[in-house]
Amino acid sequence: MAQARAWSGQVTHVIDGDSLLTGNREIRLAGIDAPEYTQPYGREARQVLYDLIHGRSVQVKPVTTDRHGRIVAHVTRDDGLHVNAAMVEAGAAYVYRRYTDDPHLIALETVAKEKGKGLWSLPSDQRKPPEQWRREHENETDRIGFNCAVRKTRCKQMTSCEEARFYLTRCGTHWLDGNKDGVPCERTLCKS
């Protein structure tokens, strides 16, 4: 993708510790990888990002588009806070070394690790980079035919009510249940 122009928008949803929505655009935070929602510290990482940006105005500077169609970007809060770096500094995300060697992010991660912040406070056997964790757990979800590592965040991406229920209960895509009654995608897939 050619370098797209930056834009401002309001955060409407926080998907997990490194993904969010501004309007109908899904943004993946560049250079970081937060624990998956079902991984140790995954829910906490999502909460950290939620507390940082939900409902706030942000500046989005696209870098590329990933294989899931998400805009990979640097996100800056309306008060100037660089959200990607703030997640690493809080110990809520790893530096995604497969895609960056940013010395500033690496230094923030080193300090967070030394101070035992966030995910770095977990026992060492529970601290795994999400990419490694996804590889180790992909067969577990493949047995039932659905996989949290496959990014599906909207009802229109689901093929059945069963799949929507899986994403709601196993992957933490809680916004599929707009009225919070435990039934996802009621207008389309899970009509009564």
Rank of each mutant, 00 (worst) to 15 (best):
R134P: 02
T22H: 06
G178K: 15
E138I: 14
A4Q: 11
A112D: 02
F166K: 00
G17T: 02
P184N: 06
N179F: 01
T12Q: 06
R77P: 01
C185V: 03
A93I: 07
M87T: 02
A92W: 05
P35N: 03
K191E: 08
E44C: 08
D142R: 13
P129F: 08
D51C: 08
E136T: 09
E26G: 04
V88C: 07
E140K: 13
E131V: 13
R43Y: 00
T38Q: 15
R127V: 13
D18C: 00
C171H: 09
S192R: 14
T159A: 14
Y167E: 03
I32S: 04
V183L: 04
R165K: 09
D66I: 05
Q126A: 03
T110G: 14
D66R: 05
Y50F: 12
T64E: 15
Q10H: 08
S192P: 12
W175A: 04
V48T: 08
Y96L: 11
K113I: 02
Q3K: 14
I71R: 13
P62R: 01
T188A: 01
P40V: 04
I32T: 06
G42L: 09
R165P: 10
T64L: 14
P184R: 07
Q39D: 07
G55L: 00
V88Q: 01
M87R: 04
H82D: 15
L81D: 11
T65C: 09
T159G: 15
W133E: 07
V14T: 08
D66Q: 05
N24D: 13
L49Q: 01
R187V: 11
L176W: 00
G178M: 13
Y94K: 10
C185M: 05
S121D: 03
V48F: 01
C185Y: 05
Q3P: 14
G42S: 04
R165Q: 07
G91K: 07
D78I: 00
G118L: 09
R5K: 11
E138M: 12
K115L: 06
